[in-house]
């Protein structure tokens, strides 16, 4: 059986799944809109969680948060189920599909057969939509893929029950009780306010402070853990910033696109100016990526090069700080 589902390629998997699922339920919201309302712009450094032998950096909130916030702010519900039993997980999936309900799934990337080998890491926060089943093949709409694809029953079970950090545990989700009317303006303002709060949070590893903290760490890493490890850590940061799903520049360009859209909806030209500023910050992140990736060539212990990269990151942090303070002001009266 195949549900009539429109696949739309997006930059980020979670935004894409949400945008596509909502579209299916008659709610038109662009990917940047979902990202902005769900306060997707973020930064966190988790030195104690190791992903692929390097500390975890994230430019977005914990998987699932964006959707939860969007639902709260627009006033619909999300049904979420996690499973211990693999067979139960499949039963529930099949039941929903039989009821003509396409569903979102959280999956691990490592065993996704349609991804190129280079992208197969033990990363468990990927999202996709299942929109049908034909014999023992599930029809998959993975928002980062240009076209729809398929996975066998066994393959899907494997990715739904991937293990490690953020293990999906068969996590299935779909929107319910969608309202006929919703207050988009209010939701946008709430999303912006929360983003400002997070990015300006007085927590050392979060938001602007987190970026500053990492820039300080980059200065000490070469002497402390050696050049090779430092490069690997920097590589992890750049990968998290630029890899599939970020839309470039650690989601900063998606966020700028959101501000531009929001400026029209709220009739607030200031947001369009801030969108341009965010674009410039995104460009700085791209420059940072270029500089960081160049360090691989010189494996010398020359800390000067690392200091320069750290300087760049520090500049970004300070620019973002000023930016979010301005953004906070721009919506404070709304």
């Amino acid at each position: 059986m195949k549900i009539d589902f429109q696949h739309n390629q997006s930059a980020h998997c979670e935004n894409g799944v949400v945008s596509n699922l909502l579209h299916h339920n008659g709610l038109e919201l662009s990917e940047p809109m979902i990202f902005g309302i769900g306060s997707g712009a973020f930064f966190i450094y988790l030195p104690f969680i190791k992903v692929n032998f390097a500390p975890a950096f994230s430019f977005r909130p914990v998987p699932g948060f964006i959707f939860s916030r969007v639902s709260k702010r627009l006033g619909f519900k999300i049904k979420r189920i996690k499973f211990k039993s693999k067979s139960k997980a499949q039963q529930v999936l099949d039941r929903e599909l039989a009821q003509n309900n396409p569903v979102g799934l959280q999956v691990g990337v490592y065993n996704l057969t349609y991804f190129p080998d280079e992208y197969r890491f033990h990363f468990n926060a990927h999202n996709l939509v299942v929109y049908g089943k034909e014999e023992d093949t599930y029809l998959i709409s993975d928002p980062v893929m240009p076209e729809v694809t398929t996975l066998t029953v066994k393959e899907l079970e494997k990715v739904r029950f991937a293990k490690g950090a953020f293990a999906p545990k068969g996590h299935i989700y779909y929107p319910t009780a969608l309202p006929k009317k919703f207050k988009l303006e209010k939701a946008i303002v709430k999303g912006i306010k929360q983003t400002c709060k997070h990015m300006l949070a007085p927590v050392p590893v979060v938001g602007v402070k987190g970026i500053l903290y990492v820039s300080k760490k980059i200065r000490t890493w070469p002497n402390k853990i050696g050049v090779k490890k430092t490069n690997h850590y920097l590589g992890q940061l750049v990968r998290m910033q630029e890899e599939i799903g970020t839309g470039g520049g650690g989601f900063r360009f998606i966020y700028a696109a959101f501000l531009q859209e929001a400026s029209q909806i709220l009739a607030l030209p200031r947001l369009n100016e801030l969108s341009r500023e965010m674009t410039a910050i995104g460009d700085l992140w791209r420059d940072f990526a270029i500089d960081a990736s160049r360090l691989y060539k010189n494996r010398s212990k020359e800390t000067d090069a690392y200091n320069k990269v750290a300087d760049k990151l520090e500049t970004i942090a300070l620019k973002e700080k000023a930016f979010y303070q301005e953004l906070k002001k721009a919506v404070s009266t709304l």
Partner: peptide, 9 residues
């Protein structure tokens, strides 16, 4: 740039 980083890893 991304290729470089991915290749390193």
């Amino acid at each position: 740039t991304k290729n470089k980083v991915l290749n390193e890893s």
